[in-house]
Design a protein around this nucleic acid. Structure first.
Lengths: 376, 376
DNA sequence: CTGTTAGCGCATTCAG
DNA sequence: CTGAATGCGCTAACAG
């Protein structure tokens, strides 16, 4: 019923092997023959059977992109950039036309919702599909059990020939002393990289920049709306913040003016209320990201506090809406598009792996209207 | 090198068929045997070969979700809801644990960037993978050639057994008179549905509601920042707007105070400048969506105009940031999560197809601070 | 309930 | 440059 390679071969009066060769384009075929085959393909409206081809070739053209939250533009922007880069057909520089689907990869994004189990599940599913590459975005959970499980899973993926790229996530911890000599005599040739390439953000530096800015304005009592506990991004941003405070000689019980919560607007709103309950004298609130800052705005509005006159607010990421908030949000810009694009290129092996397997992208401060000197 | 079903069978001392049966869970197997097999699977760390299984079964567990712009929360929210619903394992109600990956589907989102060619390309790629279902979100392009191509492609997908669900997109135009009797004698049994199920939004009604609101406040000179020309969503929202104007007896050259552009902040900014150039007497600007309204805010700020005192602004969609803009944005809420979830359930055949194959979800007006009576 | 037997559709050796 | 033969790993009839 469904048309197969053999049907095309019959119509083009060639062997199935020849059809396969023109379709994959990685083998010399006479121009005239190719022409005939392509015509037959069009006439029959033939579509390659992916599973069959993946089975025979032991690899598929699927590339998975894992994100924590697909509704969050932070991930959407990175994933979009990666997907564009990956979807780019072999030769061309732009999006190719016709719905014919030549040598492209199928770049797909998978939403883990920040759940470690789903992260693992998706990796297994991708492994099952024999994905040619996997890009994992966003911060990592710092739970030892999960780290071990992830490391094992990623190792297995890489052993199976899947390229693994980390994007906006720190590299995996070094796998200890490593296994000794290992396999028997015959050198099995250089195995795939044992460490995934990583493109990361300077979250620590960004956090530092932001709080330095606040301190320079004269703030000394600064609340901090941290991300979820146990995640690398949360920790790094917070560390940058604390480093700035320490450098300025601001001591005191910082944990008291730090609250953790998910990267959501609601968490920011509740956290801000909590912070002001704990210390009504705060002159500034730093949010772990722009979405959380959205919630801070809401809470302050509720309380009748003006930004920045009564209290300054800052975010992180510079999502598109940041500059249109009322007032425009001071934040830290991360090169999300560049990160996604580089990760995409790494996934396709189109970019050289950076020094030591890891590239750190800089964060830049964007002072806007939501921060000013404290009132008195 | 890589462990196969046969290895598991050997270790569990059963036949490969039995292993396949316990893994797929759709066939009676003795509890003890199952136990033994599962143990072997764990011990060998076996992962099913997706392509092989898809080839043999002539269907894969892949479900594709097409979106126009993955960086836009409008799509992210719908896609996330759909993905959650689809990823839900057969029996259970929540996200399943362990990275073992049982009977789940692999729900993946594909970013078309709004390009018709990429839309077709992704569909072909999914067809190639023998996807079990495809969810297509967002408005459709109204170009006849593209509509024809899409209809053909979707028909082919459905003929091949792929479930097609439209989400936030109007149903395809009826396929004309349809082909006559067709195939030969033997009734081939009831073919798959010839029309994809659709979950759509009442964009027209929402547009109407919004402009009615503005008119009720006393506005009569209203600019409109429309979406990209030739898209159903754009047209429907605009039609609702025009209908409200007409009902209020507001005539005049409405095209003059309507500008089209992509659904981006920049387009909103430029469009607003253009609108005020064309008619400085506008007392309100309606944006095709919230992101475009973001740009309108920016442009008005630039011009030193206050919202809503000097000019009212309204959006559409009620994205999370809308209520934290300065001032809070009046907009129309669409049940994005419900739409995505229903589309996901339809894709898995877990929800009855609605009346006539199409369900229309309502839009509700959310009046906020960005709209008020005109100044004089 | 379980084992045996055949392919699924394609990519590759090899010959020619 | 092209054709013929083989097997990728699994599922789906059938028997038993």
């Amino acid at each position: 019923m469904t048309v197969t390679l053999a049907d095309v071969a019959a119509r083009a009066r060639v062997s199935p092997a020849t059809v396969s060769r023109v379709l994959n384009g990685n083998y010399p075929v006479a121009a005239e023959t190719r022409e005939r085959v392509l015509r037959a393909v069009d006439e029959l409206d033939y579509v390659l059977n992916g599973p069959a081809s993946a089975l025979a070739a032991a690899t598929s053209d699927l590339v998975g992109i894992l994100v924590n939250d697909i509704a969050d533009p932070f991930f959407g922007i990175m994933a979009g950039a990666a997907q564009t880069e990956i979807g780019r057909a072999a030769g061309d520089g732009g999006p190719n036309g016709n719905g014919r689907a030549g040598g492209e990869k199928l770049a797909v994004v998978c939403n883990t919702g920040g759940s470690p189990e789903r992260e693992l599940t998706y990796l297994t599913l991708l492994q099952r599909q024999r994905a040619s590459a996997v890009v994992i975005t966003g911060g990592a959970l710092e739970d030892p059990a999960h780290i071990t499980a992830m490391a094992a899973k990623l190792t297995r993926l890489m052993e199976a020939g899947t390229t693994v790229v980390l994007c906006g996530r720190p590299p995996l911890p070094a796998p200890g002393a490593g296994s000794p000599a290992g396999a028997s005599g015959a050198g099995a040739g250089p195995l795939a990289a044992r460490i995934p390439a990583a493109v990361t953000f300077d979250n620590r530096g960004g956090g530092r920049l932001l709080t330095d800015h606040l301190i320079a304005l004269g703030h000394r009592r600064i609340g901090y709306l941290a991300g979820p506990a146990g995640r690398t991004t949360t920790r790094h941003r917070l560390e940058g913040h604390r480093a700035a405070l320490a450098a300025a000689g601001i001591t005191g019980d910082q944990d008291r003016v730090t609250v953790h919560g998910p990267y959501t607007r609601d968490a920011g709103q509740q956290g801000t209320r909590e912070l002001l309950l704990r210390d009504p004298g705060l002159t500034a609130v730093v949010a772990a990201n722009d979405t959380v800052a959205l919630g801070a705005y809401a809470a302050l509005r509720e309380l009748g506090l003006r930004i920045p006159e009564d209290i300054a607010v800052a975010g992180f990421d510079d999502l598109p809406f940041a500059r249109d908030m009322g007032p425009a949000l001071t934040t830290v810009r991360l090169p999300l598009i560049e990160a996604g694009a580089r990760a995409g290129r790494l996934a396709r092996g189109r970019e050289r792996v950076p020094q030591g397997g890891i590239a750190m992208l800089p964060a830049t401060l964007l002072p806007r209207a939501s921060t000013a000197r404290p009132h008195d």
